[in-house]
Amino acid sequence: MTSRLASAVRAIGRTSIGRAVTTFFSRNRTDNAAGLTYYSVLSLFPALIVGVSVIGMLDPGATGRFLANFNDVLPESVLSLLDKVVGNLQSNRQAAGAVALLGTLTSLWAAGNYIAAFGRAGDLVTGTDTGRAWWKTLLVRLGLTAGCGLLAIVGVITVTSGSSVASTVGGLWGQPDATAALWGWLRWLVLAAVIITITVVLYRYAPSRNLAARELIPGALLGMVLAVAASAAFGMYVSSVADYDATYGSLAGVIIFLVWLWLLNTVLLLGFQYGVTRGESAPANGGAEEEG
């Protein structure tokens, strides 16, 4: 029995996912995830300023409805903190709109800190020593930030406003309730497609070495599944086992938020490691190129 178990473990270790996990932890990629968490904090709020401002001009209640979809997944303290930040930004829509119009480039630059940090972490994963020229780095940083931000905004508007559109379309067929119920399930597929697209774009273009999208899609899928599982498990741990309030007092919400961000960045980087490992094990990998 023991020998069979050992053989099964060795067999898993020889697979792409097994080698990816082994490489990830043996090279302390969780330290890189901690660095990405730092840049997540620096980038998140400038990105929220732009995102909430633009979404608020299109649909004022969209952001709140979007966050409400994750009540059963995200830790309560994380949702509370995000709700508070979004509420403060939406409390003065006129000022928020001015920030969106006048401060977009500054906010994009600040939000791009994460893109640049992920690119450096990705270069460590791929073993790339030489990066891009500075002007290419700048263009990629701004382009990815704007592109991913636009995809995120479109995803939020689509997911939150889709039910009313579905009801209207269903009304033409005489089935508004059935169509709205169907959309209640389809919206998760739309959200998953948006998240996977953003992740693949980040994996593909942030590092200096560009891998083929077909090698990165499985890693993006793995990262998304692990992100949902980690968020749900961490939420249960916080609510049922750990007592952060007793340990950290008023800082408990911030500590929980930071740990949650670290978990997300860990599984995101693990997904990229898996994509790189799959690419290296492919018999003919002509889809990777290194930029100068």
Rank of each mutant, 00 (worst) to 15 (best):
A152E: 02
G155F: 03
V225R: 04
L221W: 06
D177I: 14
A206T: 09
I157Y: 14
S240M: 11
G184T: 09
G235W: 00
A242L: 05
V165Q: 12
A166T: 07
T168V: 11
I195A: 07
G223P: 04
Q175H: 13
T160G: 06
A230Y: 00
D177N: 08
R204C: 06
R141E: 07
A242Q: 01
Y205G: 09
S208E: 01
V154C: 03
V169Q: 06
V201C: 11
Y237C: 10
Y205P: 00
I157M: 15
S231N: 15
C148T: 11
L202K: 15
I157H: 12
A146M: 13
V238W: 03
G162H: 10
Q175C: 14
A192V: 02
N210W: 14
I153S: 10
L142E: 01
P207W: 10
V156M: 08
C148A: 13
V194P: 07
L202D: 09
A212Q: 06
W173D: 00
W135P: 00
S208W: 06
W134Q: 05
W188V: 11
R209I: 10
I196K: 05
G219C: 09
T197H: 12
G147A: 14
P176D: 00
A133L: 11
A181W: 15
V225E: 01
S167G: 02
V241Y: 07
V165N: 09
D243N: 14
L226P: 01
A229Y: 02
L191M: 08
S167M: 13
L202Q: 15
S161A: 08
G155P: 05
G184D: 01
L142Y: 13
L216Y: 02
E215P: 02
G219R: 12
G219K: 13
P218I: 02
V200A: 07
V201F: 06
V154K: 08
T179P: 12
P207S: 14
A220N: 02
L226A: 00
S161G: 03
V169S: 02
A180Y: 14
L150S: 03
A242K: 03
W135Q: 02
I153A: 10
L221V: 13
I195Q: 07
L151I: 04
E215L: 10
R209C: 09
L150M: 09
T158Q: 11
S167N: 05
L142A: 11
G149L: 04
Y205W: 15
T179A: 07
I217E: 03
A193Q: 05
G170V: 15
A133Q: 12
R204S: 05
I195Y: 04
G219L: 10
A232Q: 11
M236V: 09
W173P: 00
G235D: 00
L150C: 10
